[in-house]
Design a protein around this nucleic acid. Structure first.
Length: 867
RNA sequence: GCCGGGGUGGCGGAAUUGGCAGACGCGCUGGAUUCAGGAUCCAGUGGGAGUUAAUCCCGUGCGGGUUCAAAUCCCGCCCCCGGCACCA
């Protein structure tokens, strides 16, 4: 084969050429146009950390394929990109290299934008923004003020991570194993005032609306959010404490076990605990317990801490029996959940059981399994299952589930308690004692108290001309030009809030801003109405809870603030798997780069020679020496090959094992495609066809066309609906294999062959163009087109043509495949039975047997059941 | 502990509705080409038995079941991955 003039697949110049043409012709820029159906594809925007990694490449490749497919299916496609640009790493870089966070961030953005462009993603770059632009965050400040005015933002004391040696607040990611990431000092907790958003006010709606997302979001994410919101139904019950003349309200989900309560516990931080200990002279004991709880907060949360309590030398009265129940402050009771106090039923709650054993408290069985009796002496754990109520006065004999309702109802009637729904979800603490974030637009005035900045004074701009010192502390509190201001209400001197927003704030509404990134107000109704919601959102599973929950919350808040008419931001969600790679570990030198391992699997570091352990596939990370640099791959194989491999190696939601051999295979396929088409391109350039004239063809050409149209159908479904790009690519490869085989049997000088070949080339290029756009554009031009393939229509299949006139009939005897034969689809069951019975192989199996049944599956198989 | 997801050749993965298990790719083997290597092309490739042919048997984590028919449905178990975890 191979004409003398065969072109080499020079991916690098091809890719540069088309990227430039796309950009010059602005072909991916879109406008609101209600006359066309819209499709909004969004990938989670990146933090500008310096360079993109393979995880980004995968995320954005998946999104780009879909965006390109939808565009070819004649949707008006919004596919934007921007930068989640505030955050801690910028401050860390400032500390380490002395670069200002702003400079570091913007130069990273420039570098990463260039990297994304090299991958040929079809973004509308005219909509790009970075969240650290004041043009972006000024709107966020406005939202915050409006939330404050609606009572959705408030201040309260909160525990923060505190390094006593650096005198600074630490973000969670700066705490490593309970110690400070910089100095290694043990981190403590400290109470500080902070701002909160009342996400709990939306708990019920956030939970309910998950129903709407079923089938469109991964089940897993919905369940994770459900658990996070953690709705539970139970009762609040009053336990009077006669000594102080107050009632302790406890929360329980098991009112059916009320008669089994033998003691009562409250959190050491409960206000009544303080009151009682003061009265009883136990303040010292309580303080020690509180300190211990703070110190062991991490262990307590991990369930490692031993149960511990302080007897308050006081008793609470059981609301129904009038019994005196001892009162404790206990380390395992959380102040943040329920009422901060619980009734303890050791027989039916494992935690209470452990506590009762430790402090020798009575255990009283009030629920018994249906089939056996519980024996108190033999119990070494609590019985937490439902059952029949016993020892429960008028409720004895009831099923415990029914008992829950009856007891609660009884308490309500007597005014001793009430039904209560509780959520695990806590309000969202958004204050960060950091510099590189959006300033919280609030002012503290000695006369007026907390006052929001006037809307017309927004943005409160984050000052850039500050000195970042080595302490790691935010420079804002010491920057008097920023801090000192005047009260918007009374005009007297006042101080600004110096905390900044949690960076999850910026990512909670960016998807909406992409609809109108330049609009002076936060949103342009017309654009929002047209583009939102996001039709397909794509990103990592690591954001299953926080980001996605906050974005849903913001959407509902912005709706209630009147900005738009939308309940949920993301109609469909795809969570893609990680990119993982094999690791190598030397017993002496630790993690090794692949080039530090000899072909015999020995460590090459410092002439070590030790046997290297070939480790598991793990998420790519620098520390494990298993990263693959996207730039390196693009330089070696080109963007199209990288995109092809990434889409082919695994279905999107599964982890993708990076393989150097695998990417070679993808490269080989593109070279084959390139060679095949360039070889015939000149011959076909002037050829045109109408599908009508391709109806009567020799058998092999008909078979080829049929396969082509079957491939169009499959690829179309896989790319657009199933989002299984791997099987779409497999189908294209399969077709190309048949095409090459068929070419060996025909003459390319034949006019009919030329026409069929032209059709095959055109349609294959169209099919693969969303995945490998550059090579497709190049070959599209090569076979005689002047248009951008990126803007062409996705091919349609001919439904008549894909119908097979024969099929392979599988013949089974007793469920085992014994023979197969190609038969016409026209044949009736009887005719098929006749044919099958006459097959020599089948005769052998049927001889001398009684035929008991014949199972016939049209167009598939026939099964003879014999005795 | 609780809740999810998964386990298919040497490897990544197909099998969309219970109907030929292993599509497609990688790797491997043999051959062609080449001084050689690489690249490329052709053929083969789940395991076992078999006169290397016909053919037969086994085979989707393990054990059972439903069915004419099970990777797919049901019951029990094992292992791996992820999330949550004193939330009363």
């Amino acid at each position: 084969m191979g004409g003398v003039s065969m072109k080499r697949y020079d991916f690098s110049s091809i890719e540069v050429k088309w990227q430039k043409l796309w950009e010059e012709n602005k072909i991916f820029e879109v406008k609101t146009d209600p006359s066309k159906p819209k499709y909004y594809v969004l990938e989670m925007f990146p933090y500008p950390s310096g360079r993109i990694h393979m995880g980004h490449v995968r995320n954005y490749t998946l999104g780009d394929i879909l965006a390109r497919v939808k565009r070819m299916k004649s949707y008006n496609v919004l596919h934007p990109m921007g930068w989640d640009a505030f955050g801690l790493p910028a401050e860390n870089a400032a500390l380490k290299h002395g670069i200002h966070p702003a400079k570091w961030t913007y130069s990273n953005i420039d570098y990463m934008r260039a990297q994304l462009k090299k991958l040929g993603f079809s973004y509308d770059w005219s909509r790009e923004f970075a969240t650290c632009d004041s043009d972006y965050y000024k709107h966020e400040q406005r939202f915050f003020i409006e939330m404050y005015e609606k009572g959705l933002a408030y201040r309260k004391k909160t525990l923060v991570n505190w390094c006593p040696s650096c005198h600074t607040v630490l973000a969670n990611e700066q705490v490593e194993d309970g110690t400070c990431w910089r100095c290694g000092t043990e981190v403590t907790f400290r109470e500080m005032e902070g701002w909160f958003l009342k996400i709990t006010a939306y708990a019920e709606e956030l939970l309910e609306d998950l129903e709407k997302l079923k089938g469109h979001w991964p089940e897993k994410v919905i369940i994770m959010q459900k658990n996070w919101i953690g709705k539970s139904e139970g009762a609040e019950i009053k336990f009077p404490i006669p000594e102080i003349g107050e009632d302790l309200i406890v929360y329980t989900t098991r009112p059916d076990t009320l008669f089994g309560a033998t003691f009562v516990c409250m959190s050491p931080e409960h206000p009544l605990a303080e009151k009682i200990t003061e009265k009883k002279g136990l303040t010292e004991g309580l303080r020690t317990l509180i300190e211990k709880v703070r110190k062991e907060k991490r262990d307590i949360e991990a369930g490692l801490a031993k149960k511990e309590g302080l007897f308050l030398q006081t008793y609470a009265i059981h609301p129904l029996t009038g019994e005196k129940l001892p009162l404790f402050a206990a380390n395992f009771v959380l102040m943040e959940y329920g009422t901060g106090a619980i009734m303890c039923v050791p027989a039916h709650d494992q935690r209470d059981f452990e506590f009762a054993k430790k402090y020798n408290l009575p255990i009283k069985v009030v629920i018994t399994p249906k089939d056996k009796k519980l024996n108190l002496e033999e119990m070494n754990s609590a019985y937490e299952e439902p059952g029949i109520m016993i020892n429960s006065d008028i409720f004895t004999g009831l099923d415990s589930e029914e008992g829950k309702r009856k007891v609660t109802f009884y308490l309500e009637e007597k005014g001793l308690g009430k039904r209560k729904v509780t959520y695990r979800l806590r309000d969202w603490g958004i204050s960060r004692q950091r510099y590189w974030g959006c300033p919280i637009p609030m002012i503290y005035c000695e006369k007026c108290g907390v006052v929001p900045e006037k809307l017309e004074n927004l943005p409160v701009v984050l000052p850039l001309n500050v000195q970042i010192d080595s302490s790691g502390r935010s420079p804002l509190p010491n920057y008097s030009e920023f801090v000192n201001t005047t009260c918007p209400k009374c005009g007297s001197p006042a101080k600004r809030e110096t905390d900044t927003f949690d960076t999850f704030m910026e990512s909670s509404w960016y998807f909406a801003r992409f609809a109108c990134p330049k609009f002076p107000e936060p949103f342009n109704r017309e654009d929002i109405k047209y583009w939102l919601p996001v039709d397909q959102y794509i990103g990592g599973i690591e954001h299953a809870i926080l980001h996605l929950l906050y974005a849903r919350f913001f959407t509902k808040v912005l709706r209630d603030l009147g900005y738009f008419d939308l309940d949920e931001p993301f109609s469909n969600l795809l969570t893609q798997g990680m990119v993982i790679k094999e690791t190598y570990k030397c017993p002496v030198h630790g993690w090794l780069y692949p080039e530090e391992v000899s072909s015999e699997g020995k460590c090459l570091k410092e002439g070590c020679g030790k046997e290297v352990v070939v480790g598991k596939f793990e998420k790519m990370s620098k520390s494990k020496c298993n990263v693959v640099d996207p730039d390196e791959m693009i330089n070696k194989y080109g963007a199209d090959t990288v995109r092809l491999f990434i889409a082919f190696a695994a279905p999107p939601e599964r982890d993708l094992e990076w393989s150097n051999h695998g990417i070679e295979g993808a490269f080989r396929f593109l070279k084959r495609l390139f060679n095949l088409i360039t070889t015939h391109a000149e011959n076909l350039r002037e050829i045109s066809y109408i599908e009508e004239e391709l109806k009567s063809l020799p058998k092999n050409l008909l078979k080829l066309r049929r396969k082509l149209h079957q491939t169009i159908k499959k690829v179309s479904e896989d790319l657009e609906t199933r989002l299984h790009f791997n099987t779409a690519i497999a189908a294209i490869m399969e077709f190309l294999n048949l095409l090459e085989d068929t070419l060996k049997e025909v003459s390319v000088e034949d006019e009919k062959v030329k026409k069929v070949l032209k059709e095959c080339f055109e349609k294959v290029l169209l099919l693969i163009s969303p995945i490998c756009p550059h090579i497709s554009e190049e070959l599209w031009e090569e076979i005689g087109h002047k248009s951008f393939i990126s803007l062409e229509a996705f091919p349609k299949y001919d439904p008549e043509l894909i119908k097979e006139d024969t099929f392979i009939l599988v013949i089974q005897v007793n469920g085992k495949v014994r023979d197969q034969v190609e038969v016409s689809v026209e044949l009736s069951k009887d005719e098929i039975v006749k044919i099958a019975k006459e097959r020599p192989k089948i005769i052998k199996y049927l001889e001398g047997k009684t035929l008991k049944n014949v199972v016939f599956v049209p167009k598939k198989l026939i099964n003879f059941v014999v005795s």
